[in-house]
């Protein structure tokens, strides 16, 4: 089946889920633009990388200018960049709380806003945000992280409404723990506790994520917006 080549922007593309998605969509023949704070060592087809701080408005505006100049449009934004921290609330420094909110909420909003401006020209766009099962499970030790990701769910629902008239859908995915750098620091018994609360008691795989994103970004999914899918049967 012939599929349209899309221009896809993926934040946090240097490692983990973002890196996997960059390769996955590049392999499918799409033009992928990735960004992260640090540079990437590898080069591959249909891929361009930008180094920037996703919380820095000026750098983000420059990135979108470059996309506009080089590709003239943007079809898909995968708002993957994020940081996690697991700590008791009484032991969480304010600077850490602030950083989590900035990276997970403010930067996601910034990318949604600028992406929607670019997408609105073509009356087509797909935005996928990242939340977590820690939101519905209300995991102890993740007060700030889960709160930031709960904000993503609400933001997704509201932006879904605000961007609908421009032909842009906004949806979110809430992964279970997945074998990436982000969870390596989390104790094994804590991970097991989370898995026990899922309907399907296993770690998520990267393919579980691309499967949901494929559904969201499909051109046939133009009637799907403001939704969040949690993996593993969590609700």
């Amino acid at each position: 089946m012939h599929s349209v080549q899309r221009v896809i922007l993926i934040t946090g593309a240097r490692k983990g889920i973002g890196k996997y998605l960059a390769h996955y969509y590049s392999d499918k023949g799409h033009q992928v633009i990735g960004c992260s704070r640090k540079s990437v060592n590898v080069e591959f087809d249909n891929y361009q990388h930008f180094c920037l701080d996703v919380c820095d408005e000026k750098s983000v505006l420059n990135l979108f200018s470059e996309i506009r100049r080089k590709y003239s449009h943007l079809d898909i934004l995968i708002n993957n960049a994020g940081i996690a921290a697991m700590n008791h609330a009484l032991l969480t420094p304010l600077s850490v709380a602030q950083k989590i909110m900035d990276t997970n909420v403010i930067s996601s909003f910034l990318f949604c806003r600028e992406a929607a401006k670019l997408m609105s020209k073509n009356k087509f766009g797909r935005i996928v945000n990242f939340t977590t099962i820690a939101v519905p499970l209300k995991v102890e030790g993740e007060a700030i992280y889960a709160s930031s990701k709960a904000a993503i769910v609400t933001m997704t629902e509201i932006l879904g409404k605000e961007f609908a008239e421009y032909g842009i859908t906004v949806n979110a995915i809430g992964p279970t723990p997945i074998e990436t750098d982000l969870i390596r620091a989390v104790p094994q018994d804590k991970i097991q506790q989370l898995l026990n609360q899922q309907s399907i008691h296993r770690l998520g795989a990267l393919q579980d994520i691309s499967n949901v994103i494929d559904f969201y970004i499909s051109s046939q999914s133009d009637f799907i917006t403001g939704q969040t899918i949690f993996l593993g049967g969590v609700s």
Binding site: L61, F64, S65, L118, K121
Partner: peptide
């Protein structure tokens, strides 16, 4: 904003 970016190559909000 879009026209400014195109015409002047300047990103403004």
């Amino acid at each position: 904003e879009d026209r400014m970016s195109e015409t002047f190559e300047k990103s403004v909000v």
